[in-house]
Design a protein around this nucleic acid. Structure first.
Lengths: 202, 202
DNA sequence: ACCTGAACACCGTTCAAGT
DNA sequence: ACCTGAACACCGTTCAAGT
């Protein structure tokens, strides 16, 4: 890649990151090009589709989560491993705005630039689930696809201004109901107690 | 209202209904006006905002759900009443496409045309929840706002093509975890058993 | 090789001009 | 009273023309 091309590529990515954080995954690409001081055609040359731009933005983080999941696969507590990892996924998704719908759409679309990373992540989560189920700490009427959908739904909550304040609590509720509250007992999800009145404060 | 105005109003609504079903809440208003054979200004005269159009489309259904909830308040089984009603809400939301985000946004926006209907619905759901909690069949670490958020998240699943097939099953999972699986026992959510291999069939 | 910006077909929204 | 459509400021996407 030529030096000027590389610089444009990186400038675009830097600008896109802040724009997607602030305005969401549907932000104006024209705006991104403008802010990067680059012609619109240059943006399309480097990122032929919106997904390819998102992919460049998110790939590192996605792959990081996949790696983390693999590490968790050897941890002592399969239940904690699962829940901790799920929380990390939601947190990442909520670092940007409205990326979760793109993520979900990419799962079934082999042509999407986000496809591979999302499929890997989903598979990694599925393995953590299977392990927790094998250990008897997770319910067995759920599979990897269900888990992915639940995490997506929880991440979606964080994107809605009216619901975001509840997202943490609901994560605890859902995560808790994934786990079997039976014999083992060490797999209980710690839900931060909600501060009474935290809603009514000005 | 003049006769021609009334006709335009109704034509717009009829067209909008099918367009929102097919293309979603973000559909082109220009397209709606065009298909209704009406000037674009006429659409804006009758429906100054997109929400006001959605409100006209959904008000009847929303109020119907609120009424239904009130009827449920005197039913014999508070647990069944709650779950049945929640399912109806999700079903309605999934009759259209992508309306759930507008619904959620309206909750906190007093200026939205959808505000009143949504607040009523949320309150009606909250009463069903409170009753179920008082009867000891619903967990008590959830409030009306949480319930509304969970229902919204479940409805959102139905809007995502990749996740919609799982939405029914996950409704059962979430609804089941709202209920206390304790003494009463009659409040268990019947989740349709999933047909093995239903996913892998071509 | 790579960059640029005009060109095209779309939006949402407003508002002067018509009946 | 009500309707219309042009006008404006935006999009996404493509592609001839430049260096």
């Amino acid at each position: 890649m030529r030096a000027d091309a590389r610089k444009n590529y990186e400038d675009l990515l830097t600008v896109a990151r802040t724009v997607v954080v602030e305005q969401g995954a549907g932000a104006s690409l024209r705006d991104v090009a403008r802010k990067a001081g680059v012609g619109l055609g240059t943006l399309y040359r480097h990122f032929p589709t919106r997904e390819s731009l998102l992919e460049a933005l998110l790939r590192e983080s996605f792959d990081g989560l996949t790696t983390k999941a693999i590490e968790h696969e050897t941890s002592a507590s399969p239940g904690d491993a699962l829940v901790t990892w799920l929380r990390d996924v939601v947190t990442l998704a909520n670092d940007y705005r409205d990326v979760v719908a793109s993520m979900v759409a990419a799962i079934d679309d082999e042509d999407s630039a986000l496809h591979a990373s999302c499929v890997s992540m989903k598979a990694a989560g599925a393995r953590l689930l299977t392990r927790a189920q094998a250990a008897g700490v997770a319910r067995t009427d759920i599979d990897g696809a269900d888990l992915f959908a639940l995490v997506a739904a929880l991440a979606w909550l964080g994107d809605q201004p009216a619901l975001a304040p509840l997202a943490d609590h609901l994560f605890g509720v859902i995560a808790g109901s994934l786990l079997v509250t039976g014999a083992g007992g060490d797999a209980k999800v710690k839900t931060k107690a909600r501060v009474a009145g935290s809603k009514s404060r000005p």
